[in-house]
Simulated scan of single mutants.
Amino acid sequence: MKTPLFLPFTQEILPVPQTGEHLIAYGLQEVPETGWQPHLEIIQPWRPDYLKLSQAGFNTLPQVQEGQTYDGGLLLLDKHRKRNENRLLHLLMAVKAGGRVVVCGDKVSGAASLRKWAGQFVPAADSLSKNHAIVFWLRVPEKLDKSILAQRQNTGTRIDNRFETLPGMFSHGRIDTGSALLTRFMPDILEGAVADFGAGWGYLSACALENCPDITALDLYEADYDALQVARRNLANIPSSVLPGFHWQDLTREQPHQCYDTIISNPPFHEGRAADVSLGQAFIRCAARALKPNGKLLLVANRHLPYETILADCFRHSEHLAQENGFKIILAQP
């Protein structure tokens, strides 16, 4: 289903961009109509959507270009309230005075409450509803104290005064219970060239650098560009002779370019709001192809996820090392 985000333009409530006008867009997952191609700079840190949009010919970037200004802005909301707020605040700072910011979301993404929240800075000019979604738009005023907007941006949550995490990331503000369980088994198993599949903000890799003396190389693979940049910062101050590599890749579609002695992973099992066991299965297939002949996959998963069949198909041997607190630790060898 096409997003109602563009509805105010198709219904001619708002004027479509004119030649030379450029809008910045957050949150787009589906490819817009081709007429928008010359006008959009799409910010999409999620690798699968980035590839889809860029391959369709749209100017797509994984992160904003600081200091750029735009004639307008678009925001498609997701389920992460603080990230939505941050993006809206950035649009209000980046869009020129007189430009419009158009926001779209449903009840789950909190569109109505975000509209009310935004009213403390700029009142909504108008809105419309369709298919359980709300679209509202704001006009950036001539006088807007952008220093106040900058102060209101959520800069994330630090864990143990050392790990940075940002809204919208997996395990924001906390160490995932399954990942913590996995780290107990890493020192005895990790050796040689190691890869972290679905590295997130870098917790498993940080523990590997600190507690696994037999590793000689470490590569982090992550589809969320923002999380990968946070992982880079989280690992920067760990004293180690191993220099980590950081790879923005969608492992369900893009295979690593080398093979490893050990792979660690806490694979994702959600696509948006829906559980999707095929994501973890794709990670397992990818790991089987990326391991050296005598390599090892050390995996943590929710206990209910049915990975045993795919493990039996892809690996010569697999075993459960532990089952605790709703998680299972699996060791597999090709």
Rank of each mutant, 00 (worst) to 15 (best):
Leu235Glu: 08
Ala217Pro: 00
Ile215Ala: 06
Leu204Pro: 01
Leu235Cys: 13
Tyr203Ser: 01
Phe197Lys: 03
Trp201Asp: 04
Leu204Met: 05
Gln229Pro: 00
Trp201Ala: 03
Leu218Glu: 02
Thr216Gln: 14
Ala223His: 06
Asn211Gly: 14
Arg233Asn: 10
Gly202Thr: 03
Arg232Thr: 13
Ala227Gly: 12
Gly198Lys: 07
Ala199Leu: 09
Cys207Phe: 13
Tyr203Leu: 07
Ala208Lys: 00
Gly200Ala: 13
Tyr203Val: 02
Trp201Phe: 12
Cys207Val: 08
Cys207Trp: 11
Gln229Phe: 08
Leu220Glu: 04
Ala231Ile: 11
Ala195Met: 06
Asn234Gln: 13
Asn211Ile: 07
Val230Asn: 06
Leu220Gly: 04
Cys212Trp: 03
Ala199Asn: 05
Ala223Val: 06
Ala227Met: 02
Phe197Thr: 05
Cys207Tyr: 11
Gly202Glu: 01
Asn234Lys: 13
Arg233Ala: 13
Asp214Pro: 00
Ala208Trp: 02
Ala231Gln: 08
Ala236Cys: 12
Ala236Ile: 14
Gly198His: 06
Val230Tyr: 08
Phe197Ile: 10
Val194Pro: 01
Ser205His: 06
Leu235Met: 13
Ala195Thr: 05
Glu210Tyr: 11
Arg233Ile: 11
Ala217Thr: 02
Asp214Cys: 11
Ser205Gln: 04
Leu228Trp: 09
Ala199Glu: 02
Asn234Arg: 14
Tyr203Trp: 14
Cys207Gln: 15
Leu204Trp: 02
Leu220Gln: 07
Asp224Gln: 10
Tyr225Arg: 08
Leu228Gln: 08
